[in-house]
Design a protein around this nucleic acid. Structure first.
Lengths: 217, 217
DNA sequence: GGCGAACCGTACCGTACGGTACAGCACGCG
DNA sequence: CGCGTGCTGTACCGTACGGTACGGTTCGCC
């Protein structure tokens, strides 16, 4: 049983973190099958024996990589000042959207999602699945806080925050995520407009669905 | 060079199709690593030698499985009768949405997407990727036709059909697809409402964004 | 200095799997 | 009947990889 970790604290030693970092690099470069115990040991300049001592087996290494990456993700706290203007909130949502798309399209995120999806099929594996969902939970919490704040300030209107979040997420991400996982290049996914314009379009649509101003027309 | 295939025609013999079918069953049951040449030969009551003769190597078997499955998908033609009512179109979109969600949540679709995603990471592999995208292209064509027809009939309003389709797809699928690929059970993904109600909600939102009636308010 | 813990590098083992070869069987055809 | 064709089943090979063992080195501590 691990004791509860304080935020920012990792359950891995420095050396272990280095090894996991090397593993992530291998994963990004070559996918799951690029992570062999011998290969990782060579890349990280450590011995296979240490690998097995620290992580149990290959499966444990993969799980540790996911846990390690999840532990790195920190949720930037939403600016909590009171009575903010509609423009402030819009800016917050823009920042959120840009962060979200940047994270999801990042090479390590893509590689880890592919890994988790690969694991999901074979075993009864909640191993990868649950850990990756933690990353998603972070995102959701941040967005929910933002949504609630905007509602309290009278700029948004909705009954179910979960539903509103789902819609926001859907409009921002669309099927970009799956397509990137399938191997489409960023240029293919995002040809007619860069990330910022996509966020703008998504937010325009989201405000038309949930904005207080529009709901009153 | 294969000659062009007529729709409904497969480029595989009956015996080969049987083998590929058995492969799909294995894939659904156990993921990619469940597809071993010996295991597939045993499951399909064929010899490994035939496998290699027909498909070249293991990679070829996987590609053939994807191609085979894609060849099975047929796009139900959209009812092409003229002057249809708004209710008719709404019903068409409901049928489309239900089909889409049913297909995406099907076990073979999930298994094949996982396979393609696994392949995508390792190699320069457009092998799986492009073939799966064909399935998506079918969906897109059907939806685009529907969208254009609804616009011509004056029930929808949009400039860019591609953008409208993206929005429709996003509102229908949301992040359900990725979550299923990650291994979440259908019950987890769809707890607060079954598929039909999700389609209704998505269409309500879509019509609020693109419906002609609302745009005129 | 002596000692033990941690760790590196490497050699080693067992096995699973991709790929090949071969023997035998069924069947259609001259 | 005889023969070729296409297939099955099995035996076999080489290798890559997961996992283990062990000797050698560094480093901190008494």
């Amino acid at each position: 049983m691990n004791r509860q970790l304080k935020p920012g604290e990792s359950s891995f030693t420095d050396r272990q973190s280095q090894v996991l970092e090397a593993g992530l690099a291998l994963l990004v470069a070559g996918g799951e099958k690029a992570i062999t115990t011998a290969g990782l040991a060579r890349a990280a300049n450590c011995s296979k024996e240490s690998l097995y001592k620290w992580f149990g087996d290959r499966e444990g290494v993969l799980s540790a990589m996911i846990a390690y990456q999840a532990s790195k993700v920190r949720v930037p706290a939403v600016a909590a000042s009171a009575n903010r203007s509609a423009e402030d909130f819009r800016a917050d949502f823009e920042a959120f959207g840009n962060d979200l798309l940047s994270v999801l399209s990042g090479s390590t995120s893509v590689a880890l999602n592919r890994l988790a999806i690969g694991q999901a099929s074979a075993e009864g594996a909640p191993l990868g699945q649950l850990l990756v969902s933690r990353g998603r939970a972070h995102i959701r919490d941040r967005a929910k806080a933002l949504l609630e704040a905007a509602r309290r300030a009278g700029h948004l209107r909705f009954d179910d925050a979960e539903e509103a979040f789902e819609t926001l997420y859907a409009l921002l991400v669309r099927d970009m995520h799956v397509r990137m996982l399938l191997g489409e290049k960023l240029t293919d996914v995002g040809l007619p407009g860069d990330q910022k314009s996509k966020v703008q379009r998504a937010l325009d649509q989201f405000y038309r669905l949930y904005g207080a101003a529009f709901a009153e027309l």
